[in-house]
Amino acid sequence: MDIFNNHRKLYTVATLFFTTLTFFTAILPALKNQADNAPLPDAKPLSKEAMAGKLIYISEGCVACHSQQVRNVDMDKPFGARPGMAADYANIKRTSFFQNTATLMGTERTGPDLTDVGNRQPSLDWNLMHLYNPRAVIKQSIMPSYEWLFEIKAKPAKTDVVVNVPEAFMKGKTGKIVAKKEVLQLVAYLQSLKQVPLPEGIKPMEFLYKKEQKEMAAAGTKAKADGKALYTANCQSCHQENGEGLKGAFPPLKGSPIVNGDNLELYVDIIMNGYDARQEYGVMPAVGTNMEFNEDQIAAIMNYERSSWDNKAKPVTPEEVKKIMDFVKLKVAASK
């Protein structure tokens, strides 16, 4: 055959073959996809501050460990209320003439997914302390410290944002740790990362591979919610493993009157809808609502907190919690 002996023909045919395949499996789908998808109606463009923060997120290479995509599989559910879709990324345009579009979907999850972190962890104080040294809030974290986004001032000005870093993480430095402009922008970006709700009447894609439900259905019983695991996943990063919180940032649950007391209505309300009543502490997000906890899970968390770290309050039942949850929901709806 001629093609074996004619280099012009051989390389032309091979390259054309490859280019054709490239066109149909990469170029065309990419073009079609960006033409077919528009941002969701409720999607807001990033604020100037958040956009500057995104550039820092990009330049620090956060995408090496943090993905920003909720796949339509059950295991991704902790990271968002619904699976992501192409429209979620539709408003992301080329970063600059020199830098490519940054959807930041990522391919590794050495750290948790950040698609919805703005709902999950909105607290400025927590984020700043976490960025200064992640191990100050999460003992076992392996995330790098971003110390260079902070500066030390002997006498911070009134407008400066001071971070109350625990003594052990000061490493002999004296003065106050002050957040630089860059880290405030970065936190603004993280706070802006929230899943956009779908327009009314449109159902989100389903999460596939729901293992637990199948097993439960097979066994005919309900799996018992694990309070300790739920606490570790959702509460521990602020209130800490020992329940003592962090001085000047997050309140202790050990010996807390709310945790140990009988005002279950306030207790459930805080878990479901967050709390920002005390100036000396950071804002608490609406953990329960964000994670779509049911009464079993709430009761499990409450009972874990009420029976740990020398706390000795009497256990609550899911039925009690259910009643309060319904009541609290009504109250929230009424206040809106």
Binding site: I27, A30, N33, Y89
Partner: peptide, 9 residues
Amino acid sequence: QNGIGETIV
């Protein structure tokens, strides 16, 4: 390459 187009590429 805007939006998801970037990821496909």
